[in-house]
Nucleic acid binder design. Structure first.
Length: 123
DNA sequence: TAATTGACCGCAC
DNA sequence: TGTGCGGCCAATT
């Protein structure tokens, strides 16, 4: 059982400040497995049993993809709202306002917010 | 034991 | 320009 990066994921998720959210990709990158963002989801999957704020972890699109496994969908959204997270008309999180990046490791790369806007998740 | 899945992301064609 | 595919780690069946 290595779950070495698992521990990192937990630490990072735990460090997520209130009113902020992060994405799998960023966590994965900080953990050193940016190519394996899926594994981060697995970590959270096991973490959902812990006190980790999984609801603050969303995908790059700001969608609450993990709400399904989180348990109560409404609860997850409610928790985020309680933290002050704002949702758009699509029920997604405003990454522009609440996107938080873990500064544990060296941040050699910039966030591609442009791509997010470029993709423009059509409704 | 081995193969497949799983809350994803980035790149290639 | 849009679509599809591969990759990574671990747990599960």
């Amino acid at each position: 059982m290595k779950k070495d990066f698992f521990d990192k994921v937990y630490s990072i998720v735990k460090k997520i400040p209130k009113g902020k959210v992060t994405t799998y990709g960023h966590i994965a990158e900080v953990c050193g497995i940016k190519s394996s963002a899926r594994t981060v989801g697995w970590a959270l999957n096991l973490a959902k049993n812990s006190n980790l704020p999984c609801h603050r972890v969303v995908n790059r699109f700001g969608e609450l993809t993990g709400k399904i496994h989180f348990g109560d969908i409404n609860l997850m959204e409610d928790l985020l709202k309680s933290d002050g997270i704002e949702f758009d008309d699509n029920g997604k999180v405003n990454l522009e306002k609440h996107l938080w990046i873990p500064k544990n490791s060296k941040v050699h790369k910039k966030i591609n917010n442009d791509k997010l806007s470029k993709k423009k998740l059509h409704p």
